[in-house]
Design a protein around this nucleic acid. Structure first.
Length: 153
DNA sequence: GCCAACGTTGGC
DNA sequence: GCCAACGTTGGC
């Protein structure tokens, strides 16, 4: 079982929306490094859900991979902003996974907190200028993150 | 294959 | 809204 982290702008797709829908296809990823991580996901893997480009960026919850090697349907949809004219049904470029809602944390684990706890070697997310929207999280780091969801006083 | 121009991401 | 970082594109 592996841990990962995926980013989403809450104004585009939030954890609240994810909870309503119970599960969703993680479509629209158009970065090869991110796609390669999506290809490596296995059913049962746990995925931190990160809210980006918002007032309080950070990890807001947890989702789980329930289906892998899904052909991203938006690459063939000419009406989609994710349409890729260079992709063919014989040789589709973009694969992804279906993830299912697991939990929303009581409060966001902020990027500032994560930067205090981890170095860029621990967690790619805290590297300055990092734009990768899908990334692996090492097991020991994942366990520390899960420990951070309990508020300290 | 190089690299300048351009577009996007995303923190602040 | 600004802008640094960085991936992609396309001319050469």
């Amino acid at each position: 079982m592996n841990y990962w982290l995926i980013k989403s702008e809450p104004s585009v797709y939030s954890i609240e929306k994810m909870q309503q829908e119970k599960s969703c296809i993680w479509d629209g990823v158009r970065n090869y490094q991110a796609r390669n991580f999506l290809r490596h996901m296995v059913r049962g893997d746990l995925v931190f859900f990160y809210h980006s480009n918002t007032k309080h960026p950070g990890i807001i919850g947890l989702v789980q991979v329930i289906e892998t090697e899904i052909i991203d349907p938006t690459q063939f949809d000419t009406n989609s902003q994710y349409y890729d004219p260079k992709s063919t049904s014989e040789n589709p470029r973009w694969q992804t996974v279906r993830v299912e809602f697991v939990e929303q944390f009581p409060s966001v684990i902020t990027l500032a907190q994560l930067k205090q706890e981890f170095t860029p070697d621990d967690l790619l997310l805290v590297r300055r200028g990092n734009r990768l929207s899908v990334m692996p999280v090492a097991q020991d780091i994942a366990e520390k993150i899960l420990g951070m969801k309990i508020p300290k006083d």
